[in-house]
Simulated assay, not measured.
Amino acid sequence: MRLLHHIPRRLLVSLVLLLLFSVPWWTLLGSPLSWPDPMLLVGTAVFVLAVLGLPVLMILGHGAAQRDAAAALGDTMLGTAWLLFSWSVIGNLGGLVLLAAGVPDPARSRIVAVSVLVAVVVLLGWGMFEARRVPRVRELDVVLPRLGAGLDGLRLVVVTDTHFGPIDRAGWSTKVTDTVNALHPDIACHAGDLADGPVEKRRHQVDPLAKVHAELGKFYITGNHEYFGDAAGWIDHMASIGWQPLHNLHEVVCRGGDRLVIAGVDDPTGVGLLLGHGPDLSAALSGADPELPVVLLAHQPKQVTEAVAAGVDLQISGHTHGGQIWPFRYLVRLDQPVVAGLSRHGERTQLYTSRGTGFWGPPLRVFAPSEITVLTLRAPGA
């Protein structure tokens, strides 16, 4: 991954586009298939238009112009291209099996091409449904050895990576809020990547979250995508609708005579982009009783290194989306220590990595379902 930083950005983008589209072109239209010339010409023209059009749409949609229609179309095209590329690679591996079985060309290549095309069409339909549905609820007990008996059974409901953006999901936001409230959270958390874009453009999608009810508090931290838009604005807006931003801060919650520290840190992307932003765990825990258990909200799983050093009991993260569109999870794993689920780090620290509640970019989720998470904290021996 470090080697990629030494390749000029435009060259890297060009190489990725060439790879992303050339493998599917060869799989679906290449010479072993011996398709009729008109089919080959039309298919090639579609691929050329896609190669030229995708970067234009992404610039119009995610650049300074911020045109939502272009962003939605470009993101969908990007997801389709990834599926075509991934399943073309898988299909060609299957073609080797057919070759070993003695199936000749062009029959072998046509079997591969048709299989890939059918798989991609099915996964596109299913992936769009999975992305737009109200997420499944995932419930998990987490034992914290330092948790007091008065806090045993505390229900902490997590949403993260909602990524409210160019596709209007205000109705979905209301349904997510209703689902969270039906879970009766003691504490509600949003672990970052709230929205893509400025407050004035996305607030109508975010505002249903104001109706989330949690007796002991609602807490929010920034993700990396806030810093691509309007992090300061989102911090202020979430505070205005009743969520407590933990901008390198902590709060202490109490129940049954026992106390728990809820801390939050900024995403590392804030460093150098916004004055006074960036993760500072020392500042977040300043003044906290070191004997109390600590639950830390930190957007990226790799921030667990600092959590371990500070003796944090449980870190809650998102960011990975569980890979969102398989097999992208294996690329995510190159950058993050965990892609999804509960894991242990060091002697004390546990990390829960959510697959995320929404989606970013391509409106697809393939073999990486979204989630609303209920973490029930348990005292030892309870």
Results as ranks from 00 to 15, higher is better:
H250T: 10
W243N: 12
L377Y: 00
Q303G: 01
L274Y: 04
L194M: 05
L12F: 14
V89D: 06
L15Y: 10
P363K: 00
L274F: 08
L375E: 01
L274D: 04
V158C: 10
P327Q: 10
R2K: 13
I325E: 01
P36I: 05
W126T: 14
E251R: 15
G256R: 07
N224T: 05
T162Y: 02
V23N: 02
A283K: 15
Q66Y: 13
A100E: 08
I235F: 02
H225I: 02
V112Q: 02
R344P: 00
A191F: 08
T174S: 14
N248F: 04
I167F: 07
P290K: 01
R136L: 15
N181F: 13
A382N: 11
T177A: 15
P337C: 12
G102T: 03
L342G: 03
V332K: 06
L19E: 07
R169C: 11
V116K: 06
L140V: 09
Q315G: 04
N224I: 12
H237L: 08
V116L: 03
I111L: 13
V294D: 01
T305P: 06
V137A: 14
V338Q: 11
E130M: 14
R138M: 10
R333K: 15
R259F: 09
H163A: 09
G264A: 01
M128K: 12
R202W: 05
E251N: 10
A309M: 12
L28V: 04
D335C: 11
I325F: 08
R169S: 11
M238P: 02
G358Y: 07
L375Y: 00
M39Y: 12
Y352D: 10
G91H: 02
V304R: 02
G125Y: 14
L40D: 13
G381N: 01
L297R: 03
L73Q: 09
V180S: 08
P106C: 00
A340E: 15
E215I: 00
M128G: 15
A65P: 10
